[in-house]
Design a binder for these strands. Structure first.
Lengths: 191, 191
DNA sequence: TCGTTAAGCTACGGAGCCGTATCTAATTGG
DNA sequence: CCAATTAGATACGGCTCCGTAGCTTAACGA
């Protein structure tokens, strides 16, 4: 047998992974120190030495979660760049971290501190969303009327991706992303 | 003292209300027979006599929940009718039933039977959404190109209302609904 | 009025999680 | 190689919910 006792960073990483998996499986309400410890194959005491509550543990886990790739506009094809940006979003939605983020935002009313910590410790430090990055790029280089970049238009793509995901219980495919860009996003940009 | 023992329908109504309130407060994971019974000021045994699980109780409660008002297009002002339809949506979002629906859809992966029951027993029997009703009306009377009514365009309004609600932690006001219609919905309809 | 139905109450053993304490032994740094 | 650190295991009393059972009594209907 290999006792192989983990320590320090390696142990913390395993605990973070376990926490995200637990949220995905049990929900925020079912996130317990016992559950995380069991899944990480460690002892509760190890968790309590580092975090006072499962929620603080979860926030740390989200902060360490692999950051999302930033869209890099090809600068010549707005339509293709927008579809690429939404593809980055749907890729991220398939990760464990996305499940945790969904749980936190949809239960915001129940755990407001958690939602706030999510924004201040995870979202804000990264700045910008998916399509907004692309749109700002094209606006900066003069190929798009900057007045078209509003709090509404910059959210159309993401909003429809989420809506379709909810309605269909399934993450949209490339064809659906293209339809979103063609039928909703580009018309709103007057292009 | 007033013993005033409730029976039959009146009792069931009280239990349904308690169930919706419990979901809003405790989440799907925290929905328990004990909690519902406590809030409804009745005994657990009363609940177990009627429902085997808290989830079946919840589905019944949603089925009995006040149906949403149907948009009645004025037929002369598409913009105003769309804003009115989205206002119906935001009104509904402030009700207890909406909190329960949000919980069920966002935890669909965890409780798929619940999401399916929600659609088959609550959504499908009512048919149609908010803006879609208005758009179909205008398309039927020839004032809107029917080809513009796609699974994407009919969801733009609702999608943005949900997205803004999530991002701001607050249900959009009339001014924001107007912006959604002007900046996203009408352009996508080529109007 | 009186019998039937069902609401309301109390209690039960079992299970899971809480947060803490105690002890062991593996790992690591000096 | 030894000593400090800390992972890991076990156990604890306390709490809440589970689902069921037994009983009293209010409400209803014939």
């Amino acid at each position: 047998m290999t006792p192989e006792r983990r320590r320090g960073e390696a142990l913390v990483r395993a605990i973070h992974e376990a926490a995200l998996a637990e949220v995905a499986e049990a929900g925020l309400g079912g996130l317990t120190m016992e559950g995380i410890a069991r899944r990480a194959a460690t002892a509760k005491t190890v968790l309590y030495r580092r975090w006072p509550t499962p929620f603080e543990l979860l926030i740390d886990a989200l902060g360490e979660a692999h950051p999302v790739e930033v869209p890099t506009p090809a600068a010549d094809d707005l339509r293709a760049d927008l579809i690429a940006a939404l593809t980055l979003l749907t890729d991220w939605m398939a990760t464990p971290a996305a499940g945790a983020v969904l749980a936190i935002t949809s239960e915001r009313a129940r755990y407001p501190e958690l939602a706030e910590a999510l924004y201040s410790k995870v979202f804000d430090p990264r700045g910008g969303t998916f399509t907004a990055t692309v749109l700002r790029h094209y606006a900066a280089s003069g190929r798009l009327d900057p007045r078209r970049l509003t709090p509404i238009t910059t959210q159309i793509g993401e909003a429809l991706v989420f809506k379709l995901s909810i309605d269909n219980g399934r993450i949209p495919g490339v064809d659906e992303l293209a339809a979103i860009v063609d039928e909703a996003l580009l018309p709103a940009l007057d292009l």
